[in-house]
């Protein structure tokens, strides 16, 4: 039984399957990010409460680090949003896929901590394949 379990997870996926997963996840995330931008939700969903964010009960959590990121030239929330858009674009095009997938998963997790009520089941479901793509040896 144990050997069957090990063998089940010790198989290599076909690159085409992985590419379809990568492109689909990136496209969905990109469209979602575009919607956030179009609806003017960047500040409410990604900024801390002092900067106009809607905030939530998780503010002050030890896992929340994005509050402390200071970027030059832009509002932190706008910077994080731009980073996420570029990461989704990179993932879509297959450039630095693992790093971009990790950025997307971690930034999305931070947004979930900032405004937990705005984080829906689909966001969590998208973080799982993003983390998975980040762990794939070669794409």
């Amino acid at each position: 039984m144990m050997h069957l379990w090990i063998d089940l997870w010790d198989r290599k996926e076909h690159p085409r399957t992985l590419s379809i997963l990568r492109i689909t996840v990136a496209l969905v995330l990109l469209v979602d990010l575009m919607d956030i931008g179009r609806h003017g939700l960047v500040i409410p969903l990604m900024a801390d409460t002092a900067s106009g964010g809607w905030g939530g009960s998780s503010n002050g959590s030890l896992a929340l680090w994005i509050d402390h990121v200071r970027l030059p030239f832009v509002e932190p929330a706008v910077g994080v949003y731009t980073l996420r858009v570029f990461a989704a674009l990179g993932l879509l095009l297959g450039a630095g896929s693992r790093v971009n997938a990790l950025i997307l998963a971690l930034c999305s997790a931070q947004a979930a901590l900032l405004v937990p009520y705005a984080d829906r089941g689909i966001d969590m479901l998208l973080r799982n394949p993003s983390s998975m793509v980040a762990c794939v040896p070669l794409l």
Binding site: H39, P44, W54, Y117, I122
Partner: peptide, 22 residues
């Protein structure tokens, strides 16, 4: 109807700060 916005008023319990800011 944006799913992020909907989550704020759909599932919130009590007059939470998030709802007040919304």
């Amino acid at each position: 109807s944006d799913r992020h916005v909907r989550g704020v008023y759909d599932s919130i319990r009590g007059r939470k700060p998030t709802y007040r800011r919304f």
